[in-house]
Write a protein that binds this DNA or RNA. Structure first.
Lengths: 357, 357
DNA sequence: CTGAAAGCGCTAACAC
DNA sequence: GTGTTAGCGCTTTCAG
């Protein structure tokens, strides 16, 4: 098959070390450099990264485990991460676990055998032990989007709570008081955070009101559970939740939907019910600009900085990888502190929120 | 780090060949088998696929090059292919070339160095030489979606022409005569095919008509170019093309849009123009069920069997890979005939086509 | 069925 | 700087 270093050593009459040195950016005498380059050209030599990996115990490959590749939110993140990683010479092995915990574990096992140098993971339900074997063998792990329970692990997160709180506050500023929310499943980290943001906004406003109206003081206006409906982060769930909210709350003037799939579902249902947006109902959705722009009226949405998330994860990983290359083996098992990067969400105004103040 | 075969040989008192045989499914004496399994358990041994790859010259890794990971059509294909490949023990290295020919070449180079066993590629603009180096070194290549010009290469294609023709015919059956089409860029294979399907349908119907009306016989009714508008396969392009068609053809009653992005763009424009679908204009779009269902009225669309495309590509590749494992080295350079798999598109009825017959 | 030994293509001391 | 040498962890003859 392909020519090896030995071949080009023979061709040039030089030793293996010289060739290796050349290939790795070392100093080589000018005329030898030319000879080597000619031989490489002539023999179509290309380094065998597999052999190099065996020797250096570094595959220059990053594993990525995610719940669903076929999902705009994740694929945007991966695109950014893969791009950055590859520009640093790293390949990525992507494993889609279809939101299945068992498959997720298998994927981790698979990547472990492949000896990837590091792991980026958007956990489905993985327990700590799943990725702890990576870290025990000195390979860095970066979590995205969802935090582990006992999470002493690097991660890149978005301020879900703040984003939801902000969205709801904006509705309030436009005079909305009865605001519904379509929530995600309880067992998903981001879903809980977003719900908490909503609740904080509601509580804050009721506190402000009770401060003004002294007669109401002390009376705590808790979240009205009728205004919450679980949409399970799916299209069908979002549609069903929308209907429920609408039927249970005739006086609701606005709804906040906390992920993209549910936003699609809710819009379908809104259309089926013949509700006019924003005249009869104001809507704030989540993620995916394209969809928001294709709907009538254009949707006001919370956006997540997918590109930055992917880049942040890749950079975090790369910094660990490069650290390790520099420090000697003796210090490599020093206790590393974990880092959490928080990124801000965005907000894009459409025409789906009415001012009723 | 991890234990090696040597460690478990020492632990069990057996030779390396026995361990290797066990690991590769060979026959091992029962009591030795147990000893080996215990040692593996105790030492947490796991095969090093990198070393194995160096020895066998087979990395069990497939390279995938695609124009855009962040695209539902491609990501659905990849998801299916990756799934199947991984169930056969193959990892996938995905390279997103951002629809850039230069990046595409770099990706091929990159994967070549990584010694992937095969390549799945959805070409952006790659010339034959880009992947010919794979095939020269005996590694199979499967092309998806777009055919190469001088294409003696395995590929998985969809009957774009037939799909477009069928869509237009369905419009005709409902009484539509002035049917517009939003086309893709000339230099993309699928765009040309879809346009040809449209033209065939138009020509066929005019022939049928002229057969009935003898006075028109011989008068060839060619495609009316005013009814074609290039949308560049993008959202913005689709919107612009929609507007042009609408302005140029006051009597147009239906439009066929030939990819997903342009469908989104066209819908945006249709909404901006205040056109009522299907009362004033019938619409047939392309790809992406979710979008079709979220729009009012539900869109009638042509669908592509993305899952099957991915599976077909993976299977084609796997069949070559397994062939090679079985034949001896002497026969491995036999001339292989290339195979092309054609898949049928689907059609999902929505409520965006009116019967005006 | 099992053991010994060679070697895949590369890097990394170590001498010169 | 450059050549020599010894492996990285595995598979694979070849004997026994």
């Amino acid at each position: 098959m392909g020519a090896t270093m030995k071949d080009i050593a023979r061709e040039t009459g030089l030793g293996l070390a010289t060739i290796s040195s050349y290939l790795n950016g070392g100093n080589v005498r000018e005329k030898n450099r030319i000879k080597i380059e000619e031989a490489i050209e002539k023999l179509h030599f290309e380094v065998n990264e597999v052999a190099r990996g065996l020797k250096t115990n570094r595959t220059k490959t990053i594993g990525i485990i995610l719940p669903e590749l076929n999902n705009i939110f994740f694929s945007e993140i991966i695109t950014a991460a893969e791009d950055l990683l590859r520009s640093h010479g790293y390949a990525t092995m992507i494993c889609d676990c279809r939101s299945d915990v068992k498959r997720e574990e298998e994927a981790a096992e698979f990547l472990l055998h492949r000896r990837v140098d590091g792991l980026i993971m958007m956990p489905t339900g993985a327990e700590k032990k799943v990725f702890d074997r990576f870290r025990k063998s000195g390979r860095p792990v970066v979590l995205i989007d969802r935090r582990m329970e006992n999470g002493d692990c690097d991660c890149v997160l978005v301020d879900n709570e703040g984003a939801a709180q902000n969205a709801v506050k904006r509705l309030m500023k436009k005079g909305h008081k009865k605001i519904g929310m379509i929530t995600g499943p309880d067992n998903v980290y981001t879903a809980r955070e977003r719900q908490r943001g909503y609740e904080l906004a509601i509580q804050e406003s009721s506190k402000a009101r009770s401060a003004q109206q002294s007669d109401l003081k002390g009376k705590t206006d808790r979240t009205d559970t009728k205004l919450l409906a679980d949409g399970n982060y799916t299209i069908a769930g979002g549609a069903k939740a929308m209907r429920k909210l609408y039927e249970d709350n005739p006086d609701m003037t606005a709804v906040f939907i906390s992920n993209y799939e549910m936003t699609v579902g809710a819009m379908m249902e809104i259309n089926d019910l013949g509700i006019k947006v924003p005249e009869e109902l104001s809507v704030i959705g989540f993620d995916n600009m394209d969809f928001a722009r294709a709907v009538v009226p254009r949707l006001t949405i919370v956006t997540q900085p997918t590109e930055e998330i992917g880049q942040a994860a890749a950079n975090l990983l790369l910094s660990h990888l490069e650290d390790k290359d520099e420090t000697s083996d003796k210090t490599s098992d020093k206790i590393e502190t974990t880092e959490t990067i928080w990124l801000k969400t965005g907000f894009v105004e459409g025409e789906s929120v009415a001012d009723i103040s």
